[in-house]
Each structure stands twice: as C-alpha cells, then as structure tokens.
Design a protein around this nucleic acid. Structure first.
Lengths: 258, 258
DNA sequence: CGTACACTTTCATTTGACGAAAGCGACTTT
DNA sequence: AAAGTCGCTTTCGTCAAATGAAAGTGTACG
C-alpha cells in the first residue's frame, strides 16, 4: 500500500487492489461490499469490476456477486508451476520430507503475511490447515518471523507497523512490537527461527532462509513443522535444523545457477 | 479482445492484457519483448510494469526481466481452491477416476483455449503433458470442442475466427473452419464430444458438459482421456460415457444447490 | 402501494494517462 | 579509447479518459 513511486497508473492500481480483496476465505463479494472495503465510490467500483470481468479476471454470478475468473486461475496456476522457486526447491524439500517424516514448507512474504508456495505434508498428524496459496500472519509463524528479520527497518515498519498483537491463537505468541523486535534480533544472530506453539497449541516449527545471491536478503524461507509431542524444541535445533540448512543451501545453489 | 462495453477502463485493461502475456511457457519477459508483443509504446509498458510490480503482481529480476509476482500466486491458488467448480466436482471426478482407472479432467474455456482446472491422472501411461492451469487449443481437444459447440455463433467467431488449423499434432485433427463447424453440429445433437488422436497419436478422449442451471450453457466440461490401445472409440461411447454423464449430473446438482 | 436497497447510467469537471523525444548507462565494435 | 548500439528511464506538454455527484432503474419486501 506504499505510494511513493511516480510511475504509478492509479486506475490500474485500484483494479489490482480490488482483485486482492479475494483470498482463500473470500471467494465472492457483492458490489456493495467491495465499495465498503475499498472506500471506492460505487460507479468507480462498478467500472473496475466491469473491466476485470471483460478480461476474464472476475466473474459475476446471476445474483450479481463477483468471484475470481478463469484468467486468474490460469495465470496463477501457470505462474506457480513456472516459479523458479518452486521448481528449484521441490527436490530438496521432498528429500527432507522423506528423511524426517514431517511436514515441510516453503514460503515467501506477501505484505504482512506468509504465503505458502510449497507444502509437503507427510503424515496425518494435526497440523495447521494450510495449503499451497494459503497465507498466515507473518508474526505468528517461524517462516514469517525469519523473513521479517532480514527486512530493512523501514520496510519492516511499513509491513507490520500497525499489526495488532492480540489475536495470536497459541500460548507463546508474540505480544507486542518490542517483543517482536527482540525475537527478530535473536533470529538475525542465529540464522534460524523457531516457533513454539505460537500459532496453535501443540505445533512447533523451525525455519531457515534460502539465499539466491550474496545480497544478504533471502528469497524465501523453508521450514519443518512438527507436533510438540513428537519433537522438543531442542530436537528442532539439532538434526532437523541441519537437514533444513542443507536443503536451503542446495536450493540456493540451484537458483543461482539459472 | 472484444471492445464493446462502455464501462471499460482502458489503462486497467491494458495492464491486465500485459499480465496475460505470462503463461506456462512464458515465465519471464524483458520490457522490450513486452512492447513487441503488445504493441505498446515503451514508456507505457514501463509504467504499467512499474505499477504491477508495486502491487506485487510482477517481479523484476536483477537483469531486468519480469515475471509474475507473489500476488499472482496467492490470488491464483486461493481462487483455484475456492472455485465452486473445483469444490463441487472433486468428489464425483475422483469416483470416475477410481472406477475406470483412467485420467479424468475438468476444464473451461479461456479465449480459444481449454483451461484445465482439475486433473486426476490415475496411471503412468503416456498422456499429454498437462497439469492444472495448463491450456491447450480448444479445437484439438474434446472438452474444447464440446464447449465451443454450446457457444452462440457470434461468440464462436470471436474466439476462433482467425485460428490457423495447420498445427494440429495428431492425424485426425480439425483441418478447416468448415470441418470444425461440421463436428460442432454433431456434438450439439449427441451431447458429447469425442476426440480421436487429434492432439497426439494414441490419445483419445470423450467429454460431456456440466450444466449448473437451465440456461443451456455449460459451465465446464469433464472428460476421460485414454490410450488408444486400451479403449476403442466405441468403448468411449459406451460405459465410459455413461459414467461421465452421471458424474456431470452430480456436479451440476451440487452447483445448483449453492 | 410504498419504501428500501442494490445496481446502472448520465454528465460536467479535471486529473492523470499518453507517447514523442531526449537522456542515460552498459556493453560491442572498430 | 572513441564511436556506435541497445535497452531502459525520464521529461514534458497535450488532451483523452477517468472520475464521482447525482439522478435513474428495477426488484424485493413489508
């Protein structure tokens, strides 16, 4: 939502914002709701929706409600499969998943959320209900905090400046901005992030960064998620962490070689 | 690319067209290529790309080339999972796949292509290299021809008016517009479409429409694809067709009940 | 019958999109 | 090393195109 760049076509940007209203728990909206959520005047929203619809990015049900259209599906799934990140990581992650028998993920930052791009659930244990394309608040996940930790201070502020720290579902969730800063500092020194029952009771995970170059900024995070009965925090720091780091190095090498 | 509606925000539409340049075999483009393909003057393309980039719909590699961004991945995969079509069809299609042991698909029309939204490949036989999100030319597939057959004449013209019928890879491919019209007429009378080695040697399939209402226009097609050694055209017309039709009816009922 | 509500259309105002042309920087060629 | 090429970025004046207030339409509901 940052508006700084001079090369910004506002009407295009508005349309994109409108598209972004749709996510995994918002599959369809009425025109009225769109106006409420965006603050757009009705005629504007109407025109934008019409345009998106003509280009196949939205579809209108007979009752007037609007959902993402086939163009979105085509673009998104093609992009997902074409993504160099997904391609480069699949092999290494599968190895980790098989070796450990645990759930393995790859994610990137999208605003203040973590977006899951690869997810290999290896067992039927009770994990968070997450799939490829799902997003979770970055501050309550290990991948999210890891990625936040490598952000320049101003970008961090822009992304999570006004997050409320009240709705963490787990007992150890981040409680305040100061708390978050403390944890991020620790992540920067250790190079990995651990999340212990912050998002939900009984769920732990460890994440490491994937670097594609020497810029010092990770392009993604990968993690292993486990049930707390099965693994202590210490075992996350031990063998599991090592396997993850090896996988991250492997993925990074592949990405660099393109 | 039809331009008729008065409620069209051109700059938004241009941005969407630009996004659509990316598909499964076009993962990254240089600014120059974008201009060539769209006919846009460079400053315009530059501004559009900048805007899309600011909103996370595109990403620029260090070398200046541009790829779909995380917002596209998030939107697309969430939309795919949220799609009522996908949700309503999954169960019925899985049944067909298990009962027949063959590959089962669900697709919709996107311009002159078929977009695959669900794909259950049940065996390791040599099928077309298609995945969820892939597109194929409608005229060479059974789902495509089926969906084209139910289109009003003017829309059909708009979509495939200028398709060249030269590059069909299989022996029985449609050869001309007149040939296509003949086949579509047959589909309209029988209510199903068969494709016999049009796309590739050794590949056959049968498709039926899924109706969600009494409008007479299908919302999708489902099909069974088989290797020609395993099933004759007659067996496609027989038991396989019946199972498909049952599944289509089931899906249609589910869609109506929402 | 009447009010409310959700969407569509009109229209006058002016913003902000447009592309020609010039500027820049990196990389080749001579 | 100087001159040329290529691909991208920036400037700028013009005018088309986007905008939102307000009025219009239709349907649902009491």
């Amino acid at each position: 939502m940052a508006e700084k760049n001079q090369y910004r076509i506002e009407s295009l940007s508005k349309g994109l914002q409108l598209l972004k209203l749709f996510d995994e728990n918002t599959v369809s909206l009425k025109l009225r709701e769109i106006c409420d959520r965006t603050g757009l005047p009705m005629p504007s929203a109407f025109r934008i929706v019409s345009t998106l619809e003509q280009d196949g990015f939205l579809e209108r049900a007979p009752d007037g409600s609007v959902s993402p259209g086939v163009a979105v599906l085509a673009l998104g799934s093609a992009a997902l499969r074409g993504s160099s990140l997904v391609q480069a990581s699949e092999g290494a992650l599968r190895q980790v998943a098989e070796a450990t028998g645990e759930t393995v993920n790859l994610g990137v930052l999208l605003e203040d959320q973590v977006l899951y791009l690869v997810r290999l659930r290896n067992s039927d244990l009770v994990t968070a209900n997450v799939q490829v394309g799902s997003t979770l608040p970055a501050v309550y996940t290990s991948m999210g905090k890891l990625l936040l930790a490598y952000l320049p201070a101003d970008e961090l502020d822009a992304r999570i400046g006004d997050v409320s720290f009240a709705d963490g579902a787990g007992p150890n969730a981040v409680k305040s901005r100061a708390d978050l800063d403390r944890r991020l500092a620790e992540i920067r020194t250790t190079g990995y992030a651990i999340q212990d029952q912050e998002l939900a009771q009984g769920l732990r995970s460890v994440s490491v960064p994937v670097f594609a170059d020497r810029s010092g900024r990770p392009v993604a995070a990968i993690n292993i998620a486990v049930a707390s009965q099965r693994h202590s925090v210490e075992s996350l720091r031990g063998p599991l962490l090592q396997q993850l780091q090896a996988a991250a190095a492997d993925i990074g090498k592949r990405l660099g070689a393109s």
